[in-house]
């Protein structure tokens, strides 16, 4: 319980740091009043707007009101869409969550069995092939992989849709493009953990008492190699969110990532702000959740 509170406090500190960083970045981007007003606005108009936006107050007061507005979910109005930035992000969030989950699912379904069997059949042809595929997944940039998938499966074979969002088939190509790097990382991690666990004494004991190999694998080895893999999956969420920016752009997928790229290109900083804050919150919560899941997988860990 004390640990939980400590962890929560840590997360809050991090999120405050993130708001400070965002605040500084937005301030560096220039005078917000100039962005709101059309070109050729008079000095008086600018001064009036600065007054109204609270830009004449000392910086720490501005930061205070910035944070308090953020906590209440007010990230400002999008200059481009003329709507609250939070609404825009929330509208597109389900699409991104859907894509992220599909890619994570793809990564896990491929990587966990591949990692386990790679370790069990160490130095076999399967192991070599799986390790090469993992290296490719890690090394091929997801945006280019996405383009190549479109080229093969949409342009040439005409099997799958290349753009937009619709039925489940729209998720296949972007899901693979986005999940391939995660798959490579998770496969390597599972493999090295299973290799490590397989040589521990208790596994030998289990084998000595005549437990069938599949029982040893599923009950003893997998469970204990799951923890580091789980941490990484938590961390992967952050990378997947990053990846969603490029992947959504490649596939014209209407998610938060694409919204963020458009906002950055349009210098629509209210939306950028909301997006960065959201990314940080999701990332921080995912990491916290992973820490808490540990206790379920390994009863020895008690906080």
């Amino acid at each position: 319980m004390i640990y939980l509170l400590h962890r929560l406090a840590h997360t809050v500190v991090i999120l405050f740091g993130v708001t400070l960083l965002v605040f500084i970045l937005i301030r560096l981007s220039g005078d917000p009043a100039a962005l709101y007003l059309p070109e050729g606005a008079t000095e008086v108009q600018i001064a009036a707007l600065r007054e109204r936006l609270g830009l004449e107050q000392p910086l720490h007061v501005q930061y205070g009101s910035f944070v308090s507005r953020m906590v209440r979910g007010d990230f400002g109005i999008s200059l481009w869409h003329r709507r609250p930035a939070l609404d825009l992000v929330l509208e597109r969030l389900p699409a991104t969550i859907e894509l992220t989950l599909v890619s994570l699912l793809f990564a896990m379904v491929i990587a966990v069995p591949a990692g386990v069997f790679s370790a069990v059949w160490r130095n076999s042809a399967f192991d070599a092939a799986a390790r090469i595929v993992a290296l490719l997944g890690l090394s091929i940039p997801n945006f280019w992989l996405g383009i190549m998938l479109i080229l093969v499966f949409s342009v040439n074979l005409r099997l799958l849709p290349a753009f937009g969002r619709g039925d489940a088939t729209h998720l296949i190509l972007p899901g693979i493009a986005l999940g391939s790097a995660a798959a490579g990382t998770i496969m390597r991690l599972v493999r090295s953990n299973v290799l490590e666990t397989m040589h521990l004494d208790y596994v030998r004991t289990a084998r000595a008492k005549g437990l069938p190999e599949y029982m040893i694998l599923s009950k003893h080895v997998l469970r204990n190699s799951a923890i580091p893999a789980l941490t990484f999956t938590g961390l992967q969420l952050g990378y997947l969110l990053s990846g969603s920016i490029v992947t959504e752009t490649v596939f014209g997928y209407p998610g938060v990532g694409r919204l963020a790229v458009q906002a950055i290109n349009n210098r629509d900083f209210a939306v950028v702000q909301a997006f960065v804050a959201f990314a940080a919150i999701i990332f921080a919560l995912a990491n916290m959740l992973v820490d808490l899941l540990y206790t379920l997988l390994d009863p020895r860990i008690r906080y």
């Binding site: 993130v18 970045l25 969110l241 790229v261 960065v276 990332f283």
Partner: peptide, 15 residues
């Protein structure tokens, strides 16, 4: 806590 690409994009947009 902020994915690198997002941070890099934001900074590039500003500078």
């Amino acid at each position: 806590a902020i994915p690198v690409l997002i941070l890099a994009l934001t900074i590039m947009a500003i500078f």
